[in-house]
Structure formats: structure tokens, C-alpha cells
Design a protein around this nucleic acid. Structure first.
Lengths: 348, 348
DNA sequence: GAAGTCTGATAATACGTATTAGCATCTATC
DNA sequence: GATAGATGCTAATACGTATTATCAGACTTC
């Protein structure tokens, strides 16, 4: 316990200026309603005293008395360490930070949230959620039960990334994966590909769901469009599988898997995109050493962060129109890994 | 204003469980002092009610009543945008985040601090410093006046990076630049260098001061050890200067300046370290594309972040021994840019 | 059976700010 | 000169929790 010399309070100011604490508060908040009047000389005296003492309002007390704090909570579901996805989430935070700065809000990072069963929990004994006016939720998979509870409690929040309803619509700022994957699939078909495959990460998140939806949209035009999991299989086994099926283009959820696949192909003397086109569906979660530019798309992460703050502030001050759901377009990357299929293989 | 359905309070719990609010508080805090006793069945009843209602203590009220919050403020002096030094500060934040998570603290990023005269200010109308139990200060140059005020107010803080006294000793976790530069200077002398130069960034920060001190330590052994500024001069002009003076090794504060210098030398047909040795004195602030590994040192940024939190928590709970000042060793990088001086030039 | 001890709870209050109802005092009105 | 209205401020209270002093009752002790 630091024996802090008790901080200066409004009461101290009041005593020094010879007024009441209420007057100090009124002066501080610049109140000038019809039924609140402070004589200019009184106001000056109070302000002068404040100046002299270096008084600053206690934000805690202010928050308790009023209702707002201008603090935005940030909850990251992935445990920060030793997860390798830090680099993936950093851009979101940059966007969040930038917009928070613009609107004059502070950010509260809930680093104290304990990890239970491999994931963080918002709600736990002694959670500090309510210190913030509202919060942002980051993470690949967000517990639906916790979203339910946030909805039930009426606590303002916005998810970064689209989320399914959870006891009501969930406000979010997401990336339009479906549209992006749809566009890429269309492009592949345009190149003449007819045998498509989709390599999934095998997670149940909405982000994966949306990508698969985008992939499935063109199902009719393809001769074959199957989905196979990455999990637990090495790139060579997957490559065998693809070749056996005469697949000419593969859409890969996990960037790292695409890199591994290309490497495996190259080792086998196959060329990308000559023998196999590879399309990535997002950004890498870890820095990957590859000299290739993969065809795919970028997730507008910073912009998502910015807009998430924007939506959250509108939810907090009640000015939100509708539920507050936004999907931002992804930026397509031309890249070098999508080409026309090898005619010899394509004729089947 | 969100018409939040009034949150559940201790009073509600008390009413439901048929006890007083004080009892609820006592149960929640697991108080079991000699003069506070709660019957097991009462305790259970209260806990059950808490469970059922999903009650969570309001951290704001808790903070107002008690003194601690388990929130660590983080104040970054460099304005986040559009400064190019984000990448430099990121590792500090990673370390801070990691340790905060370990000790169960949340982090409050003071993104709301306004920028006045090109730098951020901690103290401004309506500052929220006191929401945190203490704070960490990050930035190349920290305003001494604000340190004074923190000291005067007795507000717990720790600077990341060594700081000179400001109305009292300043608690810090810094990097031992002096020792690192000293070691590198010694190494250069060992290689036979006698004509040394120091390229400074021309800032008055302690970090620069310490490096120069390390450089000056070996002054006697050198034939020439002069200091010249980088600011406003292009690499070619600097190179001219160095050559004119028959300098054989140059110590460069700013990593980017070292990269530029080496490039200028190469364009002129000179080799590094053949014709000129270049030693860097820290990490780059922006990603720099160079295939060279410069001789120099790394700043233990993550570790500084971690230890800063450690020191701050000990300052907050009063268990700090002494002022709380730590200097961590820098990690020397062997690199390829320090060699023996060209004998033809060296003989003078 | 009066005094002391132990047990289990509560009433009261503090923390610092914001808000509202209301109290004096002064000025205009007829 | 009584009433009404405007002016300038304060007293009281709320916000939700933590702490402390105190109290009622049961149980010992001699």
C-alpha cells in the first residue's frame, strides 16, 4: 500500500474556494442549464483553485456516479501466449487503437481473463467487464454462451468478425469471406478449372462457414467440388489425395497449409500453378518465409478494427441504426498461383 | 444511453438471500478474520443466490471503496499515428501483456491522451490516470515535468527505459546501453581501430546520453573519437566527412542511418567492413530491407516490458525494495560489419 | 444469576462525483 | 407592500462496494 498523500477532491476545492462540493462539480461540468446558474466570479474562483491545486477528477468516482467512462474493453479470446496468432491479431488492434484515439476513448485490455479449458472466459469470478462502457470481442471462435449472456445483460459489445445469432442478433464488423471466396471460385472457373477442392481447417467458426458458403455457391458449374480437412494430415498425403482426384485448383483456408502444399508440390517436381493452382483464403497467422505471392485475398483487418470501434460507440450512445452489423469487402490478391489448368489433365 | 436493465447488485443478492448487503460483501471477499464470522449455511445461501443471478461485482464501485483495481495503465508518449515507431514499441507491449496476464492484471491503454505540441500529455483536463493502480511510461523522450508531478502525487509508475531523476529518483527498467556500447567500443579497439566516430540522432533522451557515455568511456585509448550528428544530413555527406577524417569505425545510433551509410559506401565502391566498419546501437524502428547483419546489439524489449510490470506491481503493493531501478544487459550481435581497419588507412 | 465470552449478523459510513430539489435573496410588477 | 419571478447557490442523495463498530443472543464460568 503506497501511503499516497490523499488525492485532491472536489471537497478540497470547495473548501478552498468557499463554495459547496456541488458547485465545484457544476463548474467542472460546465453546466449552464436553465435551472443551474453559477455567477461568473464564483466560476472563476473555482477554476483558479482547480488550477492551483492541479485537481483532476477521479474517473472511478465519475464512472460510478454517471454512467460513462469513455473506456472500451477489448477481449481477445485466443490466449495471448504462447499462441502463434499474435501477428494475425495485431492489425485489428492497430485499427482499434487508431479509432479509439480519434474518438478520445481509452482501451482496456482484459489480459486478466483466465484461461479455462484452453480458452479464455469473459465471465468469471471478479470479471471487470463493467469497467468499460462496452467491449470488443476478438478471436476465431467466440463462445456462443457468452454472447448470449452479453445480450441478456444488455451490455454493449461488438464482435470483430461475423457471428451467428446468440439469443438475438450479434452486432459485428466482419469481412465478407463468402463474397471473396465466391469471386475467387468464379475466377478459377473462368480459367477453365472444373475440378475444385477446398482444404478446410476443420474449425466450426463462422469465418470458416462463410468461406465454405462462398465456395459452394458455384457448385453447379464445377464437375467436382469437394471439401477435405487439413487437420492432422501432412502436405504430401493431401497432395496425393488431390492428384488422385485430378483436382486442378485447391482453395486453402489456412495460409500455412497452402505454403506447405506448394512446397510439397515443388519437391515432387510439380509446378504451381502449372500442375496445380493454389488459392489462399486469408492472411497468414505467423510470418511465413515464402517468395511466392499466392492468389487469394487480404482481410481488411485494420479497417475492421476501426469500424468495430465506430459501431461500438454508436451502440453505447444509442445512436446505432439497426443491430450494427457490417461486412467489409476483402481485397483480392492477383498473385501467381492461379492459372489455367493443364489441358492434359483437364480433359477427363 | 443504453437502457441497461439495471444490473444485479449486492443489495439484490442480499434481499433474495434474506441477509444484509454487508454480509454479501463479506461472503464475496471470503473474509474470515477473527471479528468477522459467517455461518456456513448463510454463506452457502448467499453463494447460491449469486450463482443463480449471475451476479458480478461492479469493479468501479469496488475500486472506489477499496484502493486497488488490478489495472495497469500504459502510457505511450509517441503518438501512435502516424509515427513509424510502432514496430519498435510492439515488443515492449508484448512483454507487458505477457506479465500482466501472468499476475492477473488488466491493461489500460491511454489512447485518449491528447497530443499537444507534438507530444502526448499525461496530465490534461479529465485525465484518467487514476483508473489504474499505477502506470507504465513508454517513449523515447518523456517529459520531466510530468515525471515530477507523478513523483509529487505519489502515483505509482515505472518508466520503460532509464530516466534521470525528476524531483526524486525515477523507477525504471532500462537497457544498459552504456555497457553495450562500451563493450562494442572495446571490441573495435581490439580489432585495431583508433579513429572512431559516433553518429548521434541529436535527441536529448537518456537513451542517447547512455550510449554516448559508453562510447566516451574508451576515449583515452583512441586516437580520435568524435561525435557527429545525423540530423538533416544525407548519408553521402556523412560518408565524406568520415573519410576526410580517416575514420575507420563508426557507431550509429539510428539503425536506419547505418543502413543508409552502408548503402552509400557500397555505391561508392567501398566495402563494409573492409574500408569502414559500421556498428549499430539498437534495433530498427521500422522494418528495413537489408541482407546484412550489422554488428551491434539488441535491446531486450520484451524482457523490459515484463520486468517493468513486475517492478510496478511491487511499487503498487509497497513491497518494492529501494527505488525500483533495473538495467538489463543488451544482447551483443556479432554481425558482419565490424572488422579490422585497413592497414593502409590506419597508419597515419 | 451476574459477568464474561463467543457467535453471527447488521447498521452505519466512507469512497468521490453528478444530479436534483429546494432555499434564500434580490428584482420587477401592479 | 404583497406577489411573482429570476438568480445563485447548497443540502441531500444516488451510484455499489468495503469496512468497522455494534448489537442481540447463546453459551460459560464461578
Amino acid at each position: 500500500m503506497p501511503s499516497s498523500p490523499r488525492r485532491v477532491t472536489q471537497r478540497d476545492i470547495a473548501r478552498l474556494a468557499g463554495v459547496s462540493q456541488a458547485t465545484v462539480s457544476l463548474v467542472l461540468n460546465n453546466r449552464s442549464d436553465a435551472d443551474v446558474r453559477i455567477a461568473p466570479e464564483t466560476r472563476d474562483r473555482v477554476l483558479r483553485t482547480i488550477e492551483e491545486t492541479g485537481y483532476a477528477a477521479d474517473p472511478v468516482a465519475r464512472r460510478l456516479a454517471a454512467r460513462f467512462n469513455r473506456i472500451i474493453g477489448v477481449f481477445t479470446y485466443e490466449p495471448a501466449f504462447p499462441s502463434g496468432s499474435r501477428d494475425f491479431f495485431h492489425p485489428f488492434l492497430l485499427g482499434i487503437e487508431e479509432y479509439a484515439e480519434r474518438v478520445g476513448c481509452d482501451l482496456l485490455l482484459f489480459t486478466s481473463a483466465p484461461v479455462v479449458d484452453g480458452r479464455r472466459r469473459i465471465f468469471h469470478q471478479d470479471n471487470r467487464l463493467r469497467l468499460a462502457d462496452g467491449c470488443l470481442l476478438l478471436g476465431r471462435e467466440i463462445d456462443a454462451a457468452e454472447l448470449h449472456r452479453l445480450n441478456r445483460d444488455g451490455f454493449p459489445y461488438v464482435a470483430v468478425g461475423r457471428r451467428n445469432d446468440a439469443g438475438g442478433p450479434v452486432p459485428y464488423v466482419g469481412a465478407d469471406y463468402a463474397a471473396a471466396v465466391d469471386a475467387l471460385t468464379g475466377r478459377a472457373l473462368g480459367h477453365g478449372h472444373r475440378r475444385l477442392a477446398y482444404l478446410s481447417m476443420g474449425i466450426h467458426a463462422e469465418s470458416s462457414e462463410d468461406r465454405r458458403r462462398g465456395f459452394a455457391a458455384h457448385g453447379g458449374a464445377a464437375e467436382s467440388a469437394r471439401e477435405l480437412p487439413t487437420a492432422g494430415r501432412d502436405a504430401d498425403a493431401i497432395l496425393d489425395d488431390l492428384r488422385a482426384d485430378r483436382t486442378t485448383v485447391v482453395f486453402v483456408e489456412d495460409f500455412a497449409a497452402a505454403v506447405a502444399l506448394e512446397l510439397a508440390a515443388r519437391r515432387r517436381g510439380l509446378t504451381v500453378p502449372g500442375d496445380l493452382s493454389v488459392v489462399t483464403l486469408g492472411d497468414p497467422t505467423v510470418p511465413l518465409p515464402t517468395d511466392l505471392t499466392f492468389t487469394g485475398f487480404h482481410i481488411p483487418r485494420e479497417e475492421m478494427g476501426r469500424q468495430a470501434v465506430e459501431v461500438l460507440t454508436s451502440v453505447i450512445d444509442g445512436s446505432a441504426d439497426g443491430v450494427g452489423q457490417r461486412l467489409l469487402p476483402c481485397q483480392l490478391v492477383e498473385g501467381d498461383t492461379l492459372g489455367a489448368p493443364d489441358p492434359a489433365v483437364d480433359r477427363s
